[in-house]
Amino acid sequence: MAGLSAVLLKDLKLELRSGQSTIALVALSLLILVVLVFALGNEGVRGPEGAAGALWVALVFAGTVGATKALLAEGENGCLRGLVISPVDRATLFAAKMMAAAIFMAIAEIAAVALMVLFFNLEFDARLARIVPILALGIVGFAALATLLAAVSGRTRAADLLMPILAVPMFVPALIAGVKASAGVLAGRPLSGLQAWLGILVAFDIIFVVSGYLLFEQVARED
C-alpha cells in the first residue's frame, strides 16, 4: 500500500510540476472535437449520437497518447528499472500506473465534456451527471488496457505506432458500449435503461484490470 501511494503521488507530483501530459491531453481532445466537427460537417454531428461519438473518439486517442507518455517518463534514466527492482511488487506498480493514467484521462475528459456541450449546443443539466459513471468506466478500462500495452510496446521499435494498433481493436467493445450508453444518456434516457451497455463496460473493466494486474509482472521484467 505504501508503495502504491508513493508511486502514485510521485506521478501526480511530476505531472503537477510540468503539466505536460494533462495539457497535451486536453489540447488533443479539443483538436479531435474540432476535427470531427469539420470532418462530419456542421449538420452531421448534431445531436446526442454525434456528441457521444466525438467524446469517445477523444477518449481513445487522448488516452493512447497519455498512457504512452506516462510510461515513457519512467524510461528516463532507467527509472522503470529502478522501480522494477524496488521492493514494490510489479502488480502494485501496475495499479499505481493505471490509476495515474486514469486520473490524467479523467482531467482531459472533463475538459472534453465541457467543450462537447459548447460545440454540440447541448445544455448543462442532469444528463451530464449521468454521463459521469459511463465515462468513468470507460476511463478505467482504457487506462488498464493502455498501461499493460504501453509496457508491451514500450521497448519495441516504433512504440508509439504499435500502441494504438494493439489498443484500439481491444477497446472496441468498451467503445461500442460507451458510445451507445453516452448517446442514450444525452438523449435523456435514464441509466437503468442502459444496463446491457453498462454491463459490457463493467465486464471489460474487470477483464483488463485483472489481467493487467496478473500479467504486468511478465511484461515489466527484462532479460
Binding site: V172, P173, A174, I176, A177, A196, W197, I200, A203, F204
Partner: peptide
C-alpha cells in the same frame, strides 16, 4: 476480449 467483442457487436 473476444467474448466481450462478440456480445457487444451483437447487441
Amino acid at each position: 476480449d473476444v467474448p466481450v467483442i462478440v456480445v457487444s457487436v451483437r447487441l
